[in-house]
Nucleic acid binder design. Structure first.
Ligand SMILES: [Zn+2]
Ligand SMILES: [Zn+2]
Length: 761
DNA sequence: AGCACGCCGACT
DNA sequence: GTCGGCGTGCTC
């Protein structure tokens, strides 16, 4: 074995499920490198790959390779001085890739911000500054003669006597060679800047003493906890430094956030960092303000609103340990932390934690695995935990910490009233008793909240003369009628078209809306309650920046108002003046072909009910349905989410559904339905050859056309695999994926694999 | 996935 | 004659 044979194992931005071996760069002597134990693992490299150049990441060093010598290419350049990801982080990411049967490249590189993935150099933590010398300070324009550029640099540096880093100079259009010229003339020099309080040199990944440990943790004093909160905080902090999952079960207003804050306080006091994952719309200015007000430490945010620069800065602050609290949405689960101390997943049941395209990971599931590998406690907070999480409690893998509603001591929470609308006259979905109830609460000067879980004006546009309905030309779906702006919009593929003036089939002009979305609900309520302000909250009405905040502020002003919106309205916000909360239509959750529909509806209804009468005023909750006798709906209203969830869990256990079994969903799509069907059939046949399928350990359902077969002009077919034992299922997937990758026919259709699917669409 | 090569139809 | 369609092969 010769040292020259050492290869670097590099992952690249390609969906291929493998890494690639490269020789050490020609500029680097592997022998010296290895003797000095210079770590290459975790650094970015530029390599030639096929006919292109890519940025990859070194995930391993080996003295063995299966690749014939002549095919090995050297790495073109190593881009980093120090590793960007620790070995532990890399090991976890590679585990994630295996779990989801994804390419290691796509998975590992998702832990890097875009700019780093593109190969941008990462500035050292304290870059040297260019500073004028005394001679430079005294220099005049005349003295510089024809060197205009150099003179302009002198002028710039004069503004900052402390000097400027190269990155700033570059932004002003100066390159290093101009600086060098000044240096040669003795007009400027490079100086190291050492911020006070910090030592010299780059921080060492392994032996880092947190500089912030001596700084104060708190900026304001914590609130006094009630007994259950105290118990919850004590439970978690007594397990710092070990893997300890806990569910924090409590409605909005039960004081979950204060529990998070006080756990984090202890974590920070130990010199460790906290990672907080929140749903897509949960990152409100109020939440962030609460964290920033409490702690005298840096809080960084990672959400979709950041640009590449901001994202890189936040990522660095987290990974270098400068930020003590990292709050982010789904993808923040991949943020490297220098000194992880606790992970918190707020509203853990929220659907936005599951990525629904490409690399279909679930951030809550990954957070659990990460907490286990990092040996830190993890808190999953929710008023309506997912059945998966409740099953973990049942198995004894997860501690249940219950926070009772603090308001419950002074008033009993309202029992939701099921309002049967069979045979009742409806005005755009609203029954007379519901409208009367609204009137009652508005007359008392209160606010009313109405959830209508459908965007737009109407879900269907129909011709009154001939019955024609507007369908999407790319999908098997009806186009949704929108008023502002007026047009037809397909919610499945995004296709838009102008509103027809006349029916394209018969030419008549009488086009009717069928059913109602929030836009029409707003219109109907405005006609019925002309003197009451109506505030609509849905994806369309809060599209602009700050629109949501303006509307929330309007609601908090407290005047009587009707709030109408989609489930967005039910999430996370606290409206003290609301005393009536209503759900216009609970039926689509009841008899859906999706087995998870009931769980989701129960979560929505519970959230909505939690909005009514939070403070001093007695609340009322009304749910319109055509099935007021439905046993599960009644169980939810009478006994609450937890009891219904137990019932749903029993049903899941009996039918061998998750969380009592494990699933993987294969999808194929192609312009021709036969191509997708044929591919999935070939896969099903291949699976049937495997003993685990033949003997029934893994059950295959399909291939079947997807619930909406034609979407975006392509036909979708799916094949579901299910097993009681996860390892059995995953072993099967591990043999089928490479088989399918090599199958020539697989190129005639696009295919993907969804491990632990949630939407079976 | 990208990106090449290569082999056939229908256009300047 | 070539421009361009997409089938097939390969990427250390
Ligand atoms: Zn018509
Ligand atoms: Zn469509």
């Amino acid at each position: 074995m010769q040292v020259q044979d050492k290869v670097l194992q590099v992952v690249l931005p390609t969906p291929l499920r493998q890494w690639f071996d490269y020789l050490y760069p020609q500029s680097l002597d592997p022998a010296a490198d290895i003797a000095a134990e210079v770590p290459q693992v975790g650094k970015r490299v530029r390599v030639s790959f096929g006919r292109r150049e890519l940025i990859g990441l070194v995930v391993g060093v080996s003295d063995q390779t299966e690749v014939p010598r002549e095919k090995l290419k050297p790495v073109l350049a190593v881009l980093d001085e120090t590793p960007l990801l620790s070995e532990a982080m890399l090991a976890w990411l590679l585990w994630v890739a295996r779990y989801y049967h994804q390419g290691p490249g796509e998975c590992v590189l998702s832990a890097l911000p875009t700019l780093l993935r593109q190969g941008q150099p990462i500035e050292p933590e304290h870059p040297p500054h260019w500073q004028l010398t005394d001679k430079g300070l005294k220099m005049t324009a005349a003295g510089m003669g024809r060197a205009v550029k150099q003179w302009r640099l002198i002028e710039l540096l004069r503004l900052d006597p402390a000097g400027l880093p190269m990155s700033v100079l570059r932004a002003h259009g100066f390159e290093r060679d101009v600086c060098r010229r000044l240096q040669e003339k003795g007009l400027a020099h490079e100086v190291d800047v050492i911020p006070k309080g910090e030592g010299v040199g780059l921080p060492d990944l392994q032996h880092h003493t947190p500089v912030s440990v001596h700084k104060d943790v708190l900026a304001e004093s914590p609130l006094t906890l009630n007994a259950p909160q105290r118990e919850a905080v004590d439970c978690v902090i007594s397990r710092l430094g070990q893997f300890a999952p806990a569910v924090l079960l409590g409605v909005t207003g039960s004081g979950k956030t204060e529990v998070y804050l006080q756990v984090i306080e202890r974590v920070l006091a130990q010199g460790q960092q906290a990672l907080v994952l929140v749903p897509e719309i949960g990152l409100t200015p109020q939440t962030v303000a609460r964290f920033r007000q409490r702690f005298a430490r840096e809080v960084v945010l990672l959400h979709s609103g950041l640009n590449d620069r901001e994202r890189l800065a936040a990522w660095r602050a987290a990974s270098e340990g400068k930020a003590d609290i990292v709050i982010g949405t789904r993808s923040a689960v991949f943020t490297p932390l220098r000194r992880p101390g606790v992970i918190i997943v707020d509203e853990e049941h929220d659907a936005s934690f599951k990525q629904q395209d490409g690399f279909r990971y679930h951030a809550r599931d990954l957070a659990l695995v990460r907490a286990q590998r990092e040996q830190v406690p993890i808190m999953l907070g929710s008023a309506t935990p997912s059945l998966e999480t409740l099953a973990q409690v049942e198995r004894g893998h997860c501690t249940l910490l219950r926070l009772p509603d603090r308001a419950a001591a002074t008033r009993t929470p309202p029992v939701p009233q099921l309002l049967d609308i069979r045979n009742r006259r409806l005005q755009g979905g609203f029954s007379v008793p519901l409208l009367e109830a609204m009137q009652r609460h508005l007359d008392r000067g209160r606010q009313v909240l109405v959830v209508l879980n459908r965007r737009g004006f109407a879900p269907v546009l129909m011709c009154h003369a001939c019955g024609w309905v507007a369908g999407c030309q790319h999908c098997d779906a009806r186009m949704t009628w929108h008023r502002e702006p007026p047009r037809l919009h397909c919610h499945h593929c995004g296709h838009r078209q102008p509103l027809p003036d006349v029916c394209p089939q018969c030419g008549e002009a009488e086009l009717l809306p069928l059913g109602a979305g929030t836009e029409r609900g707003e219109e109907i309520l405005a006609a019925r309650f002309p003197d009451v302000p109506i505030i609509r909250i849905d994806r369309d009405s809060v599209r602009g920046k700050d629109r949501l905040q303006e509307k929330l502020a309007d609601i908090h002003a407290g005047h009587p108002a009707l709030l109408i919106g989609t489930q967005m309205l039910a999430k996370g916000h606290h409206f003290p003046q609301v005393t009536l909360a209503a759900v216009v239509d609970a039926d689509h959750g009841l008899y859906s072909s999706d087995p998870r529909a009931m769980e989701r509806m129960a979560q929505l209804l519970t959230q909505v009910a939690g909005r009514a009468g939070r403070e001093a005023h007695a609340g009322e909750v009304i749910i319109q349905t055509h099935h007021s006798d439905d046993p599960r709906l009644n169980l939810l209203c009478q006994s609450g989410y937890e009891v219904l969830a137990q019932q749903l869990l029993r049903e899941r256990r009996e039918s061998h559904w998750p969380p009592y079994s494990h699933q993987a969903l294969w999808r194929a799509e192609a312009p021709k339905p036969e191509a997708a069907q044929a591919l999935m059939q070939a896969l099903a046949d291949a699976a049937q050859q495997q003993p685990v399928v033949a003997n029934g350990s893994v059950f295959c359902l399909g291939p079947v056309p997807a619930p909406m077969e034609r979407r975006q002009g392509r036909y979708h077919v799916q094949l579901l695999m299910q097993a009681d034992k996860r390892s059995v299922l995953h072993q099967l997937l591990a043999t089928l994926v490479p088989w399918l990758e090599k199958l020539p026919e697989a190129r005639r259709a696009r295919w993907s694999l969804d491990v632990d699917p949630i939407e079976l669409l």
